[in-house]
């Protein structure tokens, strides 16, 4: 069984970032890059499945510039068997990511695509579902438990609780926070993973972006608040603002 895990290189989700002065994008000067945390959860899950079932092969793929090798090396250190870098400096929107991945999936024929529900830079939450649509595969988004047997049983988070879906293979699963806690990988592990295969190839996508970033700016700040000295003062202030009867 082959599990394909797409990983995105994103700015460190815990770094403080600002818009570029000309508003054309995000200022990444001096900011570290990481695997998108939700993709790291997907990788961890794929590797755990492999540890339970040695016939599982885990392939990590990233779309982007040469620097994405750093994240793919980490994916190999976490336990992916091999990695593919679709090397491009073009800007992809989610439909293009889905198309690019579809080309690769037609070649690799994975049983499962396991990926993050959203990237923490764009917060789009689109690529997985768009890919599942293009493949006409069943999907389970926001997974909190994955059980792969003769079919995939996926418990997923919903607005009001959770539900469990049974999906025939091939299927697409996107991960939520509580699926697992990714293992810690020390630097020697990353260096050791240098001997694992990493295949670079050109993009195959033919479509053009359907959306365009016009501007990035800081949100208007909330007006500064005040400290109140007691619960009575708080109640009076809330009544005054009309939010407490």
């Amino acid at each position: 069984m082959l599990i394909l895990v797409p990983v995105k290189r994103v700015i460190d989700p815990y770094a403080k970032v600002r818009p570029l002065a000309d508003g054309s994008g995000i200022d990444t000067t001096g900011v570290k890059f990481e695997i998108n945390p939700f993709d790291e959860i997907a990788l961890e899950e794929a590797v755990r499945q492999k540890e339970k079932n040695p016939s599982v092969e885990v392939v990590a793929v990233s779309i982007g510039a040469s620097e994405c090798e750093e994240q793919l090396r980490k994916a190999l250190a976490i336990g992916a068997d091999r990695a593919i870098l679709i090397e491009t400096t073009n800007t992809y929107d989610s439909p293009m990511v889905a198309e690019e991945l579809r080309h690769l999936i037609e070649e690799l024929q994975p049983s499962v695509v396991l990926m993050g529900k959203q990237a923490t830079d764009d917060d789009n939450n689109q690529a997985g579902q768009m890919l599942a649509a293009k493949l006409d595969w069943p999907q389970a988004t926001f997974a909190s438990k994955v059980d792969l047997g003769s079919s995939a049983k996926v418990t997923r988070e919903t607005d009001s609780g959770e539900e469990t879906l049974e999906l025939p293979f091939p299927c697409l699963i996107t991960t939520d926070l509580r699926l697992n806690e990714p293992r810690y990988i020390a630097l020697p592990g990353i260096i050791k993973a240098r001997s694992k295969p990493l295949d670079r190839r050109p993009p195959k996508v033919t479509s053009t972006p359907k959306t365009r970033r016009v501007r990035v700016e800081s949100p208007p700040p909330r007006a500064a608040g005040i400290k109140v000295g007691s619960v009575d003062e708080l109640v009076a202030a809330l009544k005054d603002r009309g939010v407490l009867a």
């Binding site: 700015i11 989700p13 403080k16 970032v17 600002r18 818009p19 995000i26 923490t120 830079d121 764009d122 917060d123 970033r213 016009v214 501007r215 990035v216 700016e217 800081s218 949100p219």
Partner: peptide, 9 residues
């Protein structure tokens, strides 16, 4: 975007 720290047009 980016956890609401920025607004994208």
């Amino acid at each position: 975007i980016v956890a609401g720290t920025m607004v994208e047009t």
